[in-house]
Simulated assay, not measured.
Amino acid sequence: MSDDAMDSQYTGNHDDNPESQYNDGKGIRYHVSLKLLPPPLKKGEKRRKNQRIDNINRTIYVHEEESLADLLEAAIQAVGYGDKLLFKVVSKDLRASNFTLKWSISRTDFKNMQLTTTDHFDEMVGEATQKGTPAVKLDFVEFEEVANDGDSDDEPSTSKKRKLTEEEELMAETISQLKAAYNCSDKTCTSPVCYHGNPNGEHVRMTPILLNTWASAKLAGIEGVDLEHPPPDKMFQPVEGADDVDDIALLARRRNQANQASKSATPTITINNDFAGLAQLLRPDHAMAPLAPTQLAPMPRIPSPVKPVQMSFAAFCLAANLHPDVATKLEILEIAGPHLLEFIENSILDQYLSVGNRAALRYAESQWKKGLIG
């Protein structure tokens, strides 16, 4: 029978839990599906397109009061990948190194929901237990971890690696021994390797710098330094107040304390209303003398514009001292007076007058409008 068809019943409940209210006391039914990576290629082999990879399917029952970590351990054990699918739950976050996880509940809108926090887990359990026979589908998808050296299984590296010196091999071996000795199994810790040999048993993250410092001191033969005793350096002592930044509750408390401190430090503004002497100023003997009325200078009189004098066209030509030909040649146009000149276009005047006489006529017209001719 293929893995696709296999369906076993695995119970991941702890003995100290009360009997479950669901599925005849067995708990929530989980259908676990694991999609595996394709097998590694051999040298010179190419991967086929649309290569079919069988999924591993199992059915387990887990008590509704179990934690997210308990559920994942039961599911991973059920599919037989307990030593391959690695995870930690730290500060409500699921940290999986080589798989993703989604959940679905049939006949609901909850399809392919991300499961990356304990809040997601609580939502999943809450929605599942609303049904008479709660059942959830868990989909694990394995993915390949990124190699530190950048090598790829599909394209094997052809470059030759440099052979380590004896000193480098000793350093690497010592660092491996330190990592193995101080592998942190605390699920609430965010570091895989921690030194906690200080008096308070507090965790100190073993960063690459600390590992190299410790290994170098041991290989140098510094007195008192071995796999159990680090160099006498402050780096290996816990920093006071350096708590795990993933502790959300701690960060919330710190922010609340900071807000309270800022409120208490707010300066108090005091307004002093000192009305002393105001009554003295309001007494009759301090009344201000009335101001003398301001004498306004008379507005200058603006003379009214001079209106042009009404006259005949012949009288206008005579008063403007125009050439006699102007009045004679324009007599045919029967112009009653200078007030009609603005309605006669120059093209008409040019049929009877020279350019000079027409210009003189227009100038005289402008002077007449100003009241200067009459």
Rank of each mutant, 00 (worst) to 15 (best):
M6N: 12
Y10F: 15
T11Q: 12
G12A: 06
H14T: 10
D15N: 15
D16W: 14
E19R: 13
Y22R: 00
D24N: 07
K35R: 05
K46I: 14
D54M: 00
E66A: 07
S67C: 05
I76S: 02
Q77A: 14
Q77F: 14
G80F: 04
K84F: 06
L94M: 09
N98R: 06
L101C: 02
W103P: 00
S106M: 02
D109I: 01
K111Q: 08
L115G: 14
D122Q: 10
E127I: 05
K131A: 02
T133Y: 14
A147G: 14
D151T: 12
P156H: 08
S159L: 03
E167K: 06
I175L: 05
L178H: 01
A180V: 01
A180N: 07
S185D: 13
S185W: 12
D186R: 10
K187A: 13
K187I: 08
T190P: 11
C194R: 04
E202T: 10
T207A: 05
L211T: 04
T213S: 09
W214V: 09
A217Y: 08
E223F: 11
D226Q: 13
E228C: 12
P231A: 07
P231E: 04
D247M: 08
R255Q: 13
A261I: 09
T270W: 08
L291Q: 11
L296I: 08
P300T: 00
S304D: 06
V306H: 12
V306I: 11
N321Y: 15
E331A: 13
E334H: 07
A336Y: 11
E342R: 03
I344C: 12
I348K: 11
D350N: 12
A359H: 11
A359W: 08
R362G: 08
S366I: 00
